[in-house]
């Protein structure tokens, strides 16, 4: 589907990071799932109804690859027309990402930053180390 940048990202993330994280979590928690006594009928029904509603919603959608679909007639081609003389960067995805949608990318970077800080605060051990020092009177903690 011509999305070279996305394919690249997904390959790097999927091969490099997410496998390590999932396996790391499994090693830190439990290996097996306890069998649940809940019936799976209600979730199945809810999922089927939601799916049917969504399929009904797609009946009005434009066909795959249709060149006069709403997504292809407004801002997308406008970017493609303006990038060569306004930004002058061959890769249109990079030009939009960093220049036209710079605010968006700044926000996304801030989300990655916040998620990283959250992980550090939850499990990096910085906090527990400090708490141990406070509990131990010899190290001159607040206790």
């Amino acid at each position: 589907m011509d999305a070279v940048d996305v394919a690249f990202t997904e390959a790097a993330v999927g091969a490099g990071i997410s496998t390590v994280l999932m396996l790391g979590t499994l090693a830190l928690t439990a290996r097996s799932e306890r069998s649940s006594s809940r019936s799976s009928f209600v979730p199945l029904l809810a999922v089927l109804v939601t799916g049917a509603a969504l399929v009904y919603g797609t009946l009005d959608m434009p066909s795959f690859g249709q060149s006069d679909a709403p997504a292809q007639t407004h801002v997308g081609p406008d970017y493609l027309e303006r990038i060569p003389h306004e930004v002058g960067v061959p890769n249109a995805v990079t030009a939009i990402l960093a220049s036209y949608r710079g605010y968006d990318t700044l926000g996304e970077t801030a989300v990655v930053f916040a998620a990283g800080i959250g992980v550090l605060m939850l499990i990096s051990g910085l906090r527990t180390r400090r708490r141990k020092e406070e509990d131990d009177p010899d190290t001159g903690g607040s206790a």
Partner: peptide, 12 residues
């Protein structure tokens, strides 16, 4: 060219 805008959104 394909529409680059969805690529940008999904990449991030």
């Amino acid at each position: 060219y394909s529409n680059p805008l969805p690529h940008v959104l999904i990449l991030t």
